[in-house]
Design a protein around this nucleic acid. Structure first.
Lengths: 129, 129
DNA sequence: CTTTACCTTCCACTAAACTGGAAGGTAAGG
DNA sequence: CCTTACCTTCCAGTTTAGTGGAAGGTAAAG
């Protein structure tokens, strides 16, 4: 698989893949005789994992740590375990924060929904925008 | 309340408060006769709200939109309602993404925890670090 | 009266995560 | 052979969210 096809499959640009390779999130892959990168199909799921992490708000550095653990595959040494425990803890904190925020925003939304929509002129833009 | 005290109460720096004022997240407040900013106590909770949003991964622009709605207080026009509905939707997507990621990381963690910790030499740093 | 700890503005810099563009190689179609 | 659509490297620019530091004002304590 060439870079363009791989990037498209993951919904990214070729620029982004080269950038991820540079940052160590994507291992330097084989090259075709002409120098073109040749990716195995698994790269797509790896990229999808990265994207999920990004969407969730993790930094590339954090995602890189998780991927490094995944790449070792075996060797469950205490450092690996601690690292993952920390990531889990961070994720839990993040989820709790988001859930609290959602509740706050839901309150605002209900208050807004309770008002009379007819009172708003669709031709006019809200005063604060 | 002067800027230093306000910032400390919210666990931020004075630099950050001035920056938030510049970005419109913090309204320009009263000044003492000597030119010093004088914040009302509510500013602390506003700052805490901003920090929660940031921790949750929202951008300052998104937080600013929510705060703008809060500042209007009344006037539940359709634009406001739509904006909040969109924010809620984004938050839900984010929470779902994070929860899925947490499950993946938990799997890695359990696999690591299942290994024999004695196999790891505490004197040696993991090969991937 | 000077030191200390605040505060003011302004401008430049950083880090993260890309994104754009230049300059050039390659392989297939017309 | 030429155009087109890929690919290569390298370097520079962008956005977001601050941070650092200069140059200077202010108020209280020693």
């Amino acid at each position: 698989m060439r870079i363009g096809e791989t990037a498209a499959a993951a919904g990214m640009t070729t620029k982004t893949l080269r950038f991820y390779e540079d940052r160590g999130l994507l291992p330097a892959t084989d090259r075709a005789p002409n120098g073109y990168r040749d990716y195995p199909h698994e790269t797509v799921s790896r990229l999808e994992f990265i994207r999920r992490g990004r969407t969730a708000g993790l930094t590339l550095a954090q995602i890189g740590e998780i991927l490094a653990v995944r790449d070792i595959g075996h060797a469950p040494c205490i450092h690996v375990k601690d690292l993952l425990a920390k990531q889990l803890h961070d994720l839990d904190a993040r989820i709790a924060e988001l859930t609290a925020l959602r509740a706050t925003v839901a309150e605002f939304h209900e208050a807004a929904a309770a008002g009379d929509p007819a009172a708003c002129d669709p031709e006019r833009i809200c005063s604060y925008l």
